[in-house]
Amino acid sequence: MLDKKRIDCFTCRHFYITWDRDFRKGCRAMGFKCNEMPSIVVYQNSGVECLRYEPKLPRKQK
C-alpha cells in the first residue's frame, strides 16, 4: 500500500472531524468525507500521495 511514509492527516490544515456518523473524517481541500484517513483514500483512488497536504500553522501562545 503506502511504501514510504504516510501523510498524517492530523497534521494537515485541511483535515477536520465531521459530525456525520457515517463519515467521521474530512478534507476541506479535496471536498470529501470518509471513514478512513483522507490521504489513504486519495492514494487508493489515484495511486499518488495527497498533493494538497499543508502543515497546520502553529497556534498562537496566549
Rank of each mutant, 00 (worst) to 15 (best):
R21P: 13
K60Q: 13
R21W: 00
D22M: 03
S46C: 07
V42W: 05
C12K: 06
D3K: 12
K60A: 11
V48S: 11
F23V: 00
C50R: 00
V48E: 12
Q44C: 01
G31K: 03
D22Y: 09
L57G: 08
F15M: 05
F32G: 02
D20N: 15
K56T: 12
T11I: 00
D3N: 09
E36L: 10
P58K: 03
D3M: 10
I40G: 00
A29L: 01
L57E: 14
E54C: 03
D8C: 09
N35L: 10
K62E: 12
R13D: 13
F23A: 12
N35D: 04
E36K: 11
S46G: 01
T11Y: 13
F23N: 15
H14M: 05
S46A: 07
E54H: 06
V42M: 05
R21G: 01
M30N: 14
V48N: 08
K62H: 11
Q61L: 10
K56Y: 07
E54N: 05
C50D: 08
K5N: 12
R6I: 08
L51P: 02
M30D: 08
K62V: 13
R59Q: 14
G47M: 04
K4S: 10
P38D: 08
V48H: 10
G31V: 01
I7G: 01
C50N: 04
F10T: 14
M1A: 11
R13L: 12
